[in-house]
């Protein structure tokens, strides 16, 4: 549970870092749009998606991270939320490894602008992925154990 909440909090921080207005600007729709377009430049610099796709990802990903973070913290449907998180982090990590291997010198974009993509960011995101995998496996194991401990409905009816 603690790991799930930590992961959820990290997603909330990541979403906030992408949505927060640039220094000297207050919170407004225009300021959020500007921040998202700054993020679009970082997504584009990975040279993986077309310009329109990079723009689309940048405009939706922070909101997705925000909702996923809240979902993780809520504990509802833990298996689904942790599985989705693992898939997302695996995607992020593989893109980062590819970029690093290609020798592209870019910003990570993981927690807002200005963070250089390097060995440190790879270690950090790799650790997050490992944590997410562990939490997902635990969530599935826990649910299996709970399922085994509950008597099957038909048997329970017959025993009445």
């Amino acid at each position: 549970m603690a790991g799930r909440i930590v992961l959820g909090a990290i997603f909330l921080v990541a979403a906030y870092a992408k949505l927060r207005p640039q220094p000297g600007m207050g919170w407004s729709v225009g300021a959020i749009k500007t921040s998202l377009l700054m993020f679009a430049m970082q997504v584009d610099s990975y040279q993986l998606l077309s310009s329109s796709a990079a723009s689309f990802v940048a405009k939706t990903l922070p909101f997705f991270e925000l909702l996923l973070g809240l979902w993780l913290i809520s504990g509802l449907f833990a298996r689904a939320s942790t599985l989705l998180t693992t898939l997302l982090l695996a995607g992020f990590f593989s893109v980062m490894v590819r970029t690093y291997a290609m020798g592209l010198e870019i910003n990570c974009g993981c927690f807002g602008p200005g963070e250089h993509l390097g060995a440190k960011t790879l270690i950090r995101d790799g650790s997050l992925l490992a944590l997410s995998i562990a939490i997902t496996v635990l969530a599935f194991l826990r649910s299996r154990m709970v399922a085994r401990s509950i008597p099957e409905p038909e048997v329970a009816l017959q025993s009445r």
Partner: peptide, 14 residues
């Protein structure tokens, strides 16, 4: 007001 810095290639459209 300053914006950035950001590194790497960025397309003209973005």
């Amino acid at each position: 007001k300053p914006y950035g810095p950001t590194a790497g290639f960025v397309s003209w459209q973005v």
